Amino acid sequence: MPEAGFRLNDPVFVGEELVMLRDQVRRFVEKEVTPNGEAWEREGKIPREMFRKLGDMGLLGMQHEEAYGGTQMGSLASVVFGEELSRSTFGGFTAAVTVHTDMSASHITRVGTPDQKARFLPDIISGTTVCAIGVTEAGAGSDVAGIRTRAVRDGDDWIINGTKMFITNGVYGKVVVLGARTDGIEAGARGISLFIVPTDTPGFNVTTKLEKHGWLCSDTAELSFEDMRVPGENLLGEMNRGFHAIMQGFEHERLMIGAFCAGEGAKAIELTLDYVRTRRAFGKSIWDQQATRQRLADLASKVAMIRALTYQTAAAKDAGQPVSRETAMIKSVGPEILHDVVHGCLQLHGGSGYMRGTPIERMTRDARILRIGGGATEVMLEEVAKRM
Rank of each mutant, 00 (worst) to 15 (best):
P2C: 01
E3R: 14
D23K: 15
K31W: 06
V33G: 03
R42W: 12
M50Q: 11
M50A: 04
D56C: 03
M57P: 04
L60Y: 05
L60G: 02
H64F: 12
E65L: 08
S86T: 04
R87L: 13
G91A: 05
T98R: 08
T98G: 00
V99E: 00
H100V: 04
S106K: 08
I108E: 00
R110S: 06
Q116S: 01
R119F: 00
I125W: 00
A138S: 14
D143S: 09
I147V: 11
R150P: 03
I159Y: 02
I160R: 02
I167V: 14
T168R: 04
G173A: 06
V176E: 06
V177R: 03
G184N: 13
T201F: 05
N205D: 06
G214D: 04
E233V: 08
L236Q: 08
N240Y: 04
I246C: 03
E253Y: 14
E253D: 05
I257C: 10
F260N: 09
G263R: 00
K267Y: 06
E270P: 04
L273E: 10
F282I: 07
Q289T: 07
A300S: 09
S301T: 08
M305W: 05
T310I: 06
T310K: 01
T313P: 01
K317P: 00
A319F: 02
A319V: 05
Q321P: 01
P322I: 15
P322R: 12
S324M: 12
M329H: 10
M329G: 03
K331E: 12
V333P: 00
G334T: 04
I337F: 14
D340A: 15
Q347N: 15
L348H: 02
G357V: 06
G357C: 11
E361V: 03
D366V: 07
R368H: 14
V379D: 11
A385G: 09
A385Q: 13
K386I: 07
